[in-house]
């Protein structure tokens, strides 16, 4: 008897779940393969994530190209924006690394634009946010880690290992400090990638939940999550910029550490 009731209850619950709109704010992080490609047995399919990377970079390059279609000494609005983006990154490099950091300018500028435009285009309804993919941010973080570490060894040779030995410490503390330094150094790519990925994921998840409530609540309740979603979209735009800025500035800091070893 109890079994029957339980079965019926379970069936009823399942039915209800089927009928009601299902809340799945993580749905839009789903990577969907559009064109499956396999290269030497490795999957390099073009997915929605990859397509939105291209769209974001296309918009970035398109805007820059449009701003620079006929450069004037007295710039127009778009030209000013293009120049401002370059000067912004140049300023970050000058502030964190100094003049000799300018030889890494193209790299850092590309990184900034990539992250910024992936973050911001992700706010277009129905789009996909490539920077909400841990593997995308991880690729950059590992790339930056390898680049800065390589730079450190290239610049200082084996002397770069002294980076893990903080100066001015009693020798007794060294067995404690050196592992901490090594761990914090190795944690850099993790924190760098997870920060960006988590920010993007969290923001978009919150937006997804708000949109779900807006769509499912009756009209007298829907305005509240709708209003929140409007405000939060603006906040997300700001966060997208801030995270791109943080990613860039931390990259600069790591390069600076490699060049100057604090």
């Amino acid at each position: 008897m109890t079994m029957l009731i339980a079965n019926a209850l379970a069936a009823g619950a399942a039915e209800a779940a089927e009928a009601a709109p299902k809340m799945d704010p993580l749905h839009h992080f789903q990577v969907i393969k559009v064109i499956p490609i396999s290269l030497f047995g490795i999957d390099v399919s073009i997915s929605n994530s990859v397509i939105w990377i291209w769209i974001a970079l296309g918009i970035a390059l398109g805007l820059l190209r449009y701003g620079l279609r006929a450069p004037q000494l007295v710039p127009g609005r778009m030209q000013s924006m293009a120049e401002a983006s370059l000067l912004f990154v140049r300023g970050i490099i000058n502030d964190t690394i100094g003049k000799e950091g300018q030889k890494f300018f193209p790299l850092i500028f590309s990184l900034f634009l990539f992250v910024l435009f992936c973050n911001v285009t992700g706010l277009i309804p129905g789009s996909f946010t490539p920077t909400s993919q841990l593997v995308v941010t991880g690729t950059f973080a590992v790339g930056v880690f390898i680049f800065s570490t390589g730079l450190g060894f290239y610049k200082h040779g084996t002397h770069y290992f002294k980076f893990f030995v903080p100066g001015g410490l009693p020798v007794l503390l060294l067995p404690l400090m050196v592992p901490i330094e090594i761990i914090s150094y190795l944690a850099r790519p993790v924190s760098l990638s997870v920060r960006l990925f988590a920010n993007m994921t969290a923001g978009h998840t919150v937006l997804g939940v708000l949109f779900f409530f807006t769509a499912t609540l009756p009209w007298f309740g829907a305005w509240l999550p709708f209003g929140f979603s409007v405000v939060f979209t603006a906040v997300e735009g700001f966060i997208g910029f801030i995270q791109a800025y943080i990613f860039t500035i931390l990259t600069c800091v790591y390069i600076n550490d490699a060049l100057h070893m604090h």
Binding site: L26, F29, Q30, V31, K33, I37, L39, I42, D43, V44, S45, I46, S47, S49, V50, I53, W54, L57, A60, L61, L64, P106, L107, F109, S110, L111, L113, F114, P130, S132, Q133, L134, V135, V136, T139, F140, G143, F197, T201
Partner: peptide
């Protein structure tokens, strides 16, 4: 989290690197 689906990793790593390289070149 769909982000932890290892099946999609290789393609995204590959295309991220390629796209970044192209962006770097064009810039």
């Amino acid at each position: 989290l769909p982000q932890f689906d290892v099946l999609n990793f290789s393609s995204q790593i590959f295309w991220t690197i390629v796209s970044f390289a192209v962006l770097l070149y064009l810039l």
